[in-house]
C-alpha cells in the first residue's frame, strides 16, 4: 500500500467520522390522551312568559261563541342532543267545564308537529304531545306557539282566571 492509498483510506474514514459525529439524534416518542364526555342536553325556553289574556266575547246568532287565539305571539327555542325526543305540554289546572284551551307548536328543523292539540285536561300526569321525532337539534328560529280558546254557551260567564302551561322535552314513545 503506497502513500496515495493511505491518503484515500484516511480521507474516507475521516468522512465517515464526520457523518457519525454530526450529533444526529435517535428518535423517541411519548403518548398523550385527550378525551371529552358529552352529557345529555335538553333545553327549551319560550320567548314570553305571558301570552296575555284570551277573551271569548263574540258570537254569531245561532252558533257557539267565536274561538279566539293569540295570533302566535310567542315562540320556543330548543336544544337537544338526544334522539327521538318530544315536546309535551301540561297545564297547571284543568280548564273549567265547557271551555277548551288548545295549543299548536311549530316543529323545529327536525321533528313533526301534532298540530292543534287540546290541552284543557293536561294537568298532573296527563301531559299531551305537541311535537315528536326531535333529534339532535339546536333551533331558535320561528318555532311559533299559538293558543286557542273556545267556550260553549254552557260555560256561562267565566271570571278571568290564569293557567300556567309547561313545555317539557321528554323521551319519545
Amino acid at each position: 500500500m503506497n502513500a496515495r492509498d493511505i491518503l484515500k483510506i484516511s480521507a474516507l474514514m475521516a468522512a465517515m467520522g464526520m457523518v457519525v459525529s454530526s450529533g444526529a439524534i435517535a428518535g423517541d416518542s411519548a403518548q398523550q390522551t385527550l378525551n371529552y364526555q358529552v352529557s345529555a342536553i335538553n333545553e327549551i325556553s319560550v320567548s314570553n312568559a305571558s301570552v296575555g289574556t284570551l277573551i271569548v266575547s263574540t258570537a254569531t246568532a245561532g252558533l257557539q261563541p267565536d274561538e279566539v287565539d293569540d295570533g302566535g305571539a310567542t315562540s320556543y327555542s330548543i336544544t337537544t342532543n338526544g334522539t327521538g325526543k318530544k315536546i309535551t305540554a301540561t297545564i297547571s289546572e284543568d280548564m273549567p267545564a265547557n271551555m277548551t284551551l288548545s295549543l299548536q307548536a311549530v316543529a323545529p328543523t327536525v321533528g313533526s308537529s301534532e298540530g292543534k292539540v287540546d290541552i284543557s285536561s293536561a294537568s298532573g300526569e296527563n301531559a299531551v304531545d305537541l311535537v315528536t321525532g326531535i333529534t339532535q337539534v339546536a333551533d331558535n328560529e320561528g318555532n311559533t306557539l299559538t293558543y286557542y280558546l273556545d267556550a260553549d254557551v254552557a260555560a256561562g260567564v267565566v271570571a278571568s282566571t290564569e293557567r300556567t302551561v309547561t313545555l317539557t322535552i321528554e323521551d319519545g314513545s
Binding site: V20, A26, S39, I41
Partner: peptide, 30 residues
C-alpha cells in the same frame, strides 16, 4: 472524531379531559 449517536428522550406529562353539558351551550336553549 467519531461520536456515538445521541438518544434523546421525550416525556409528556398531563392529559386533558372535559365534560360538556347544558352549561356549555353558547346561549341556552336554541
Amino acid at each position: 472524531s467519531m461520536q456515538v449517536a445521541q438518544a434523546a428522550d421525550i416525556s409528556v406529562f398531563g392529559n386533558w379531559s372535559e365534560t360538556l353539558g347544558a352549561a356549555d351551550l353558547v346561549g341556552g336553549a336554541g
